[in-house]
Amino acid sequence: MMVTVKLFNQLQRFAPAGQGVFEERLPSGASLNDLLRQLKIPATVPRTTLVNGRRVADDAQLAANDEIVLMSPIEGG
């Protein structure tokens, strides 16, 4: 299945082709953890993760056409 991945700030360095926004192929039924492994993003890298705009746990199952946003923690205002 194909999903859309958006990597922002310090997470962009894990983009396979250098572009922060890309399509990624995953096995059907893959989880967020599977995607993180595929992109070689270590568990120790701080991030905020959204799937279709919702914050989810790393073992959440993904579906085709999901949009996954990974961004460095930010605060302020």
Binding site: F8, N9, G53, I74, E75
Partner: peptide, 22 residues
């Protein structure tokens, strides 16, 4: 370990978060 977003881009860096949270 992880430079603060606030130091790098100031509070203006929050635009990315609020846009993605809608």
């Amino acid at each position: 370990e992880t430079p603060l977003g606030l130091t790098i881009n100031g509070t203006a860096g929050v635009v990315m978060a609020t846009q993605n949270f809608g």
